[in-house]
Amino acid sequence: MAKNISVTIKFWKQNGPKEKGHFDTHELKNIPDDTSFLEALDIMNEELISEGKEPFVFDHDCREGICGMCSLYINGTPHGKTERGATTCQLYMRKFKDGETITVEPWRSAGFPVIKDCMVDRNAFDKIMQAGGYTTVRTGQAQDANAILIPKDDADEAMDCASCIGCGACVAACKNGSAMLFVSSKVSQLALLPQGKAEAARRAKAMVAKMDELGFGNCTNTRACEAVCPKCETISNIARLNREFISAKLAD
């Protein structure tokens, strides 16, 4: 049975990447606790607009945990303290206490400049993918389903890696602003399959070089990334990326 709660939202306001930001607060009263957090922010925006204030800007899209657009740092945790393996859109108000102050911040990293408020520019991830996160047409035409036999474990692990939605929570949580969990998941999803092996060396080098060029930090294995990943990616992917990268460099 749903009950109503009242909370104070303390949200980040910033007009652009070079502007100085600050916190604003808004009281949300009598919100049903089965409301999703993003719906609560929608309600807050309606109230702000009715008060003649500028609404709070944040990213969202599918609202079912598969697109990776929602990107809020809630009470010190990327995506908030959701169930394991869930994104901001799968966070519900029942996770908060009546009277609680909820602090909402953007992903903070040099690689993700703020566009406005809590909306950040994550084009850097697209650029990393463009650098090598694919197989080119030159690897041949599509094979018949059973022409290339792939062990079930490898296929499952590749699928797990491919489930990375590129939300950027790993970068947001990392004290080094490192994108290694994202890059390693994208390298692994191909490296584990025969179709991806042909270009494995070029891919690892190109994606790591692009990641460094875009100003992401280095991995120091704190494991903060895997602790907050909504798709439960693990740092064993990072070890695989390191292996692929070192092999590629040694082969040069």
Binding site: T103, A110, G177, G217
Partner: peptide, 13 residues
């Protein structure tokens, strides 16, 4: 390098 990559703003919480 990691300090630079973290950006100028720090999390409040």
């Amino acid at each position: 390098q990691n300090w630079k990559a973290r950006g100028t703003d720090r999390y409040a919480v």
